[in-house]
Design a protein around this nucleic acid. Structure first.
Lengths: 339, 339
DNA sequence: TAATTTTACTTAATCAGTTTAGAAAAAAAC
DNA sequence: GTTTTTTTCTAAACTGATTAAGTAAAATTA
């Protein structure tokens, strides 16, 4: 049970280490007879070649390093595990090990850069990481990497795997319109960011294409917090504004809060107010009524990222930007006015 | 920018590779003068020693492998990321890299065992893994490992880091009693399992110690599902049974469902019915009213696991069983009847 | 001042594989 | 029956570090 080496196997089989190495790597140059005999010895001894030697020799680690942004607000970390599962599943298929690092705002790159320089991984997947100086450092040093769900500026050179939030927004608004709603409000983040702008454009474009008017009073550009969507609704009701028949929220964190505010004011969801949002967080399923939401395949985000990274590592062609499209998941927060 | 080796540094500094190695590892045997000069060369060239060589030489990988059980029901995966964060933070402090593997019911151990035999990691952390044959295999082969949040049978030899569910149950029940509740129901899993039994005992013991009677009608031993807690409440109401003033639920997944059922029947929480559960899942915070729950430090679970594993790897003494105690997190689902 | 110890440094072996170059044997071609 | 080619196999170099063993010089002791 002591630690076997390739030399032990060679001795037991009466062949050279070269032969054993060839057999382990399914290379030609060994007769079928010898191959079979050595394989039997390998199987019976339970020998497994040392990875470090292999990695040292081949100058590759067969490892992918996942860098995850750790948000203080737990709700933002909801996807990460599913993304990791997707990454793992693809890595397993392709023969990579997966290691990970969490980072946050107080982050110092040196330790990670040292790990990269020490050849600990063949490439990186950056999940929700948008640090531009780190990204350009990776580009300078020609280190293979992919950004996933990173909300990073699309510049054409960056390999990205992203959720198509524009389409989510467009499709959700269109869905509400097709359910007979004409008065559709919007609740989304006001922080200036390409992502938020394109999400807002999805709403605007869908309203226009459906021939509906946007009422500025119904557009809530708000700061992200656990209560801001509800406060926006409060101000609508208390300011005696008309309340639309439906709201599109750019995230479930907003819609859950909106739902509670609506209930507080005596609005029944979906009878008095319909709500659709994006993300399909777990909470949206457990709330009453369960919320309809634009859902997307979070595992696919991770899986695609691995595929792209694998292509980059092996100098194969790849698609720079991969978009995952959300689809409406109908639960019970939207009333069909056509009926 | 080409790949530097220790030989390049040695040549540039006019010393042997041994000297460079000593300097890299802060070992004695090199004069301060030489040390300083070589360190400057290392810094200016940005040289980082190859990890694989180091690992090969030292026969250690300085890597911890986290094995995570992947539940089909998303709600069960809620802790995993926080546990991983705790693991990562401790590993960073101790100088370990962290790799991970997801497993599920269809799992085949061979691939993981090969990874272990190939010396890919120094030890394992099993998160929510309770496969007894795998665990005894690890024990047989003397591979360092720790179980975290594993619900595994405590046998005295297994290194475990667990949540103290008995105490959570006892304290939650006591908390309700101290808030003036006398009629306290119980909703928990009926699947036969040491964990569920000890959770139930916590409730029973607290009721006894507080001098309260247990009404069998108020004890819901149910199958786990998204709706079973609500169905139990339905049956109570529809069967014209008395409804207790408070329920302790063994998990937030139950209490969220109970909350919705109670609302449906016109019960106001907390005025007509108080609810306390265990877990502090994200959903319990976003529901209305926010649920009081026995919360525990999920990051600490991971961090402790690393500490124990580190001790095992280094043949240092360690505590076999580490218990993390939940504490009441007061939100708005419990009425104080003493006022 | 000579003998001993300590310090500073190096050569060469080692970790456990892969791979190049080449030898011996077998098979194919002439 | 030779010559050529192919197949099978091996010795030895190589990956990039660590480390045991050993040497020369400096510092300490006698």
């Amino acid at each position: 049970m002591g630690n076997l080496t390739i030399r032990d196997i060679a001795r037991l089989a009466g062949v050279s280490t070269t032969a054993v190495s060839f057999i382990l790597n399914d290379k030609p140059g060994v007769s079928e007879e010898t191959r079979k005999r050595v394989k039997e010895i390998i199987a019976s001894t339970g020998f497994t070649p040392n990875v470090h030697t292999r990695r040292l020799n081949l100058g590759r680690s067969f490892t992918i390093h996942v860098v995850l942004y750790w948000h203080q607000q737990a709700i933002f970390n909801q996807f990460a595990l599913e993304i990791m599962y997707g990454i793992f599943a693809s890595c397993k298929r392709l023969g990579y090990s997966v290691m990970f690092t969490f980072i946050d705002r107080t982050w110092d790159v040196t330790q990670l850069m040292e790990s990269i320089h020490s050849k600990d991984c063949d490439g990186l997947i950056l999940s929700q990481v948008e640090d531009p100086s780190f990204i350009s450092l990776l580009q300078q040093e020609n280190i293979p990497f992919v950004c996933v769900d990173s909300h990073v500026k699309k510049d054409g050179n960056l390999p990205l795997v992203e959720v198509d939030y524009y389409k989510a927004s467009y499709d959700a608004t269109q869905y509400l319109a097709r359910m007979g709603h004409k008065d559709i409000g919007y609740i989304g983040s006001s922080t200036p960011h390409e992502l938020h702008e394109s999400t807002f454009n999805g709403y605007i474009d869908a309203m226009r294409d459906e021939g509906l008017a946007c009422n500025p009073a119904w557009i809530g550009g708000i700061e992200f917090s656990a209560t801001s969507a509800g406060e926006f609704f409060d101000s609508l009701v208390e300011g005696k504004f008309n309340v639309p028949t439906a709201f599109f929220c750019t995230g479930d964190a907003f819609s859950v809060n909106l739902l509670n505010a609506a209930k507080r004011h005596g609005y029944n969801v979906p009878d008095d107010l319909s709500i659709v949002s994006v993300d399909d967080l777990l909470v949206s399923r457990y709330v009453s009524p369960p919320l309809s939401t634009m859902s997307f395949d979070k595992e696919a985000l991770g899986a695609k990222a691995v595929d792209v990274l694998h292509a980059i590592i092996n100098d194969e062609p790849y698609q720079t930007i991969t978009m995952i499209s959300p689809e409406i998941l109908e639960r019970s927060s939207v009333k069909n006015l056509n009926k």
